[in-house]
Design a protein around this nucleic acid. Structure first.
Lengths: 318, 318
DNA sequence: TATTTTTATGTAAGTGCTTACGTTTGTATT
DNA sequence: AATACAAACGTAAGCACTTACATAAAAATA
């Protein structure tokens, strides 16, 4: 009965479980040490140990080697200084540095602690052996995995994937005509002005896009149309990706990417060789997306009948 | 080069490694969550989750189920209350209790978070699978080991063993005569007064103990005599454990136990059937040790020629 | 050479827990 | 019924770190 919830949340709390286990072990070690010798604080030990090995060290070097932050090192060094176990001196060549080294008292105490240190190691070793697991390799293995791709990245990707899967892409239907117009208006007004040219096309998608062999895609999230994009037939081998618009509030849900992929897929299925598009220098996010999908910027600046600072990008379908 | 010290201290820092790994995972989870929705704090989640499952709960019940202390629960509940995700009410039968339950807003939010929760679970699962280790069984296994015998106990035992091994037991030699006398004087003065009877025996151990077929043992730690104990021959079948004295500053190093064991071993090797001793009611630690070694209190109160509140304990050698 | 950037250190404050302690209420014992 | 004991909750403070920020010196760059 008890711990049932605990076990349900086990996978979610994975990090916490590791943390708690480690903490409880450290807590008990600290307690035992304090009982033996009020000065023996296991958290001080690694710093002392390292100082013994290298004679003297800067703060940064300690932080790097002990895998803790430099403020943590400084706090430990301060305690050691209070206990007269180390002494510090400013760096000679580099005046920013602070070197720390053991005092005679520090060396002696460290020597006395060596035995307790070994005892702790023995107990840890026994526990690990009794557990029957190669705990260190496990820790290493997970650390390496997270070094290759850190947790944040993994989780961000997972979330992106999930959201992308939630966005459905559907094809044109008369009932979406108003959505097509609205989404594009919203977008145009944000960046430019709506020109007569736009007005004409956006009001008659059947006539200017569908009937001419093109297609219009819509991104739907929870039964709401959040984005659109058209594939306009230019010639047998070329389709234009155009009228891409995703509503502000649904940004970041990968709808644009999914829409663009649909256009590309459509063009490909029609046997096209190129997908081309016009875009504007200031639309960084869009340009990035197109690049990511393999579009390349045409070298010559294009003169379009739209009064914008535009250029052409083209994707070669293999 | 780097991390070398780290790896030298690996076994010592076992708990810390686990803790750090867990912490770093939790940190990144928290960061990602905060970016998505400033209110989604993964540390709040288990409490919400549990409240959803049981409808309402007391503080203590939450603490038990989530394996955290009750102040931790209260702190989380306070945050949740600030966010209007829960509401609390005092217990009806038991007025000490405080019940918490989700508000409508809390239920809705929890529902929204469900997806992010699943994403975190998926990432954790992937990491664990990629690592190739059965991390949960490992954690369980170690937790169980520590439940059977906690870390503190293990470490205390390890230290005791080590110290006991360091104490060497050696047999009588004239050069230790002064140690024998001094140790016993120190001890006698602390608890009683030195009587003529004592004086006589302590000054002539060769004559009164060794020559009569007994033996005197000394405990040596780092070339210093820290304790002594005599085996005095009473008759063919009986030796008396007597003149046990361990110097104050070396208490707790198991010297007494080791000395007593030496006396018992000596008596056994001489073919004795009993080891007997006189002790005083106020010497609790000593009595405990003797009991631990198998000595049993003789039922009748003994009249000794020492003016102390004494009784006899005897060990039957099998 | 002047200026920007980076590095080493230090300080302050935050975090997510914990232990320690106090108050109120309930339960057990005399 | 009176009293001792235990439990539930709450508050305060501590712990072992962390992030965030500040400062001065060194290194890189223009």
């Amino acid at each position: 009965m008890k711990n049932e919830t605990f076990s349900e949340l086990k996978l979610f709390s994975f990090g916490n479980l590791l943390k708690k286990l480690g903490e409880s072990i450290q807590r008990e070690i600290t307690e035992v040490c304090k009982n033996r010798d009020s000065r023996f604080d296991p958290k001080l030990f690694p710093v002392l140990y390292f100082l013994q090995k290298v004679e003297k060290s800067t703060v940064q070097k300690l932080a790097d080697n002990l895998q803790i932050t430099h403020p943590a090192v400084i706090q430990i060094l301060n305690k050691l200084k209070e206990l007269n176990l180390i002494e510090t001196s400013p760096g000679l060549q580099d005046k920013r540095q602070t070197y720390s080294k053991l005092t005679e008292e520090g060396k002696e105490l460290l020597n006395n602690w060596q035995e307790l240190y070994s005892d702790i190691e023995s107990v840890n070793k026994e526990i690990i052996e009794e557990s029957g697991y190669d705990v260190f390799n496990m820790i290493n293995s997970i650390n390496n995995l997270l070094k290759q791709k850190n947790y944040k990245q993994r989780l961000d990707e997972k979330i992106k994937d999930r959201i992308m899967q939630q966005v459905e892409i559907i094809t044109y239907n008369k009932k979406y005509r108003e959505d097509f117009k609205q989404l594009n208006y919203e977008w145009l007004k944000q960046y430019f002005v709506v020109e007569p040219e736009d007005e004409k096309l956006l009001s008659n998608p059947d006539k200017f896009i569908i009937k001419k062999g093109g297609q219009i895609f819509f991104a739907r999230l929870n039964n709401e149309i959040i984005g659109t994009c058209a594939a306009i037939k230019i010639d047998k081998y070329t389709y234009e990706l155009s009228k891409m618009a995703v509503t502000e509030k649904a940004q970041g849900k990968q709808a644009g990417k999914k829409l663009a992929l649909s256009v590309i897929g459509f063009a490909f299925s029609k046997g096209a060789k190129f997908v081309t598009l016009l875009t504007n220098k200031k639309l960084f996010a869009a340009i990035n997306l197109y690049k990511q999908l393999g579009f390349e910027i045409e070298p010559e600046e294009v003169k379009s009948n739209y009064e914008r600072e535009v250029f052409r990008m083209t994707l070669l379908l293999q």
